[in-house]
């Protein structure tokens, strides 16, 4: 639905990127209230261009690699606050980012929602300091029962809004519908499509279509 909504605003000058983003996510519980999450996120580009056919580039390239670590504290049974750091390696540059977030889950009878409010600050040697404020709604639907249990499939989808403050102000929207499998050891594998609508609602927007492969490991 969101993809269709965003795609409805396509113009011929809009640019796009198509590729894949394999993500490895490690989560370890330190004690009953603290947990640590580490993430490795790579981005591979298969094709770029404009929707009017200009600047077509089909050369494969490895765009970037992110490594992230986040420490989370449980405030209540369904609420967590977290803070973390990310380092990005992209085109010979090293980019640093700090993150702060609060999240809460909302279990209903056969669906579970998660709300995440996040702020991050980025220092890129080639660009001005960037601040982003974000809200993400996630929903998880078990395909076989009332909750996702080991050895079961599930559907998960997230929808996120980002307000970017750099030299100016930009909107960004993201959505990632995925099909997931929770293994008996409680590790999870997800396969889906991530869509990013950058410079949203502007005369020339950019669109990212990424095949998403997520692997979540519980330590």
């Amino acid at each position: 639905m969101a993809v269709l909504l965003f795609a409805g605003r396509l113009s011929a000058q809009d640019v796009y990127r198509f590729g894949a983003t394999p993500v490895l996510n490690l989560n370890a519980k330190l004690n009953s209230n603290y947990s640590i999450n580490a993430k490795l996120d790579n981005r591979l580009i298969f094709q770029t261009g404009a929707f009017n056919g200009e600047n077509l580039n089909t050369a494969y390239r490895f765009e970037r690699q992110d490594a992230e670590v986040v420490l989370a504290n449980k405030l209540s049974a369904n609420t967590k606050v977290a803070g973390g750091y990310m380092i990005r390696f992209e085109s010979g540059r090293v980019i640093h980012r700090l993150m702060q977030q609060v999240s809460f889950t909302q279990p209903l009878s056969t669906i579970r929602f998660a709300h995440r409010i996040k702020a991050d600050q980025t220092w890129d040697p080639d660009e001005a300091f960037e601040l982003r404020l974000r809200y993400r709604l996630g929903a998880e639907v078990p395909l076989f029962g009332t909750q996702v249990d080991p050895n079961e499939l599930y559907f998960k989808s997230t929808l996120e809004y980002l307000a970017r403050f750099q030299a100016g102000f930009e909107n960004e929207l993201r959505t990632t519908p995925t099909l997931g499998y929770l293994a008996p050891n409680e590790n999870a594998f997800e396969l889906g499509l991530e869509y990013r609508y950058g410079k949203a609602f502007e005369a020339m927007s950019d669109h990212g279509f990424w095949l998403y492969f997520g692997y979540y490991v519980r330590i």
Binding site: A72, T105, A188, E190
Partner: peptide, 10 residues
């Protein structure tokens, strides 16, 4: 015993 929320949050 609750299911983990990591998959939904991170």
């Amino acid at each position: 015993v609750e299911q983990s929320s990591d998959i939904l949050i991170f």
